[in-house]
Simulated scan of single mutants.
Amino acid sequence: MPCLPHSEDRNSAVEVIASVVAQLDSVLPIGVEVVLHDFDLIPNSIVAIAGELTNREVGDPSHSMMLERVTDIGKDGFVSFESVMMDGRKVRSTSIEVRDLDGAAVAALSVNVDISPWEAMRDLVDSVLHGVSGGQKHVGEVSNAPAVSAELDGPSPNFVRNVDELAVLMIRREIAAAGVAVKRMSRADKLSVVQRLNDRGFFLIREAAVQIADALEVTRFTVYNYLKEIESNDA
């Protein structure tokens, strides 16, 4: 941890650190703040501040949580914690304790970072990634292979380029939605897949019956029989 000279020189040393902090004001990114606290001036301990995250000024009091946690710094010389501002922004703070050569705590240098934008970015990325890898396929996604695979082997992030690939996509989605491997599907399971595809206009696609027959491991005539049964039930 940083150490200052003995007590008779500590004031000038704090001033040196304060001057360094003041120069950071023009280079800190938005949402970052550096604060120097002089423990001799508690509660109005701020002697230097760079950044405008909390809109505090020299002579203002320190964060109450920083004061509570500073006793937890211990031999590592720093402590980190999170807090919430009045406007709801979440701030992550790291305070580094400064001791004099006698080992007495005389100051603390704190770095405060607004992490709310980063959390929002993380949530956005998670929503996109989960939408692909979580098994929920979106229109426009399809495997590179034009042949229909009966099972989903993983995410298929490519855009469809023709009608055949659209058929592949629709079949893969409905087989995945069934939640049963094709080899374990009952007749009712396969009928349900065909019915959902029919409801989505799948059989308007050329050679649709052949493609779904291959995927469900049945004959084309079995698919036609499924369609007749569906039409009969609808009637």
Results as ranks from 00 to 15, higher is better:
M1Q: 11
S7G: 07
N11D: 12
A13E: 11
V14E: 10
S19G: 15
D25T: 02
L28P: 00
P29S: 06
V32L: 03
E33V: 11
E33W: 05
D38K: 03
F39C: 14
P43F: 08
S45F: 07
E52H: 07
T54M: 04
T54H: 01
G59P: 02
S62G: 13
R69S: 00
D72A: 09
G74Y: 05
F78T: 01
F78K: 04
V79H: 03
V91K: 09
A104G: 01
V106H: 04
A108S: 15
I115F: 05
W118G: 11
W118F: 15
R122V: 13
D126I: 15
S127G: 05
S133Y: 15
G134M: 11
Q136E: 15
S143R: 13
A145S: 14
V148K: 02
V148F: 08
E151T: 06
S156D: 08
P157W: 14
R161F: 00
L166I: 10
E174V: 00
A181Q: 07
M185H: 04
M185R: 01
A188P: 01
S192Q: 13
S192R: 13
S192N: 11
Q195S: 14
L197V: 01
L197D: 06
D199R: 15
G201F: 05
V210M: 13
A213K: 01
E217C: 04
T219F: 06
N233P: 00
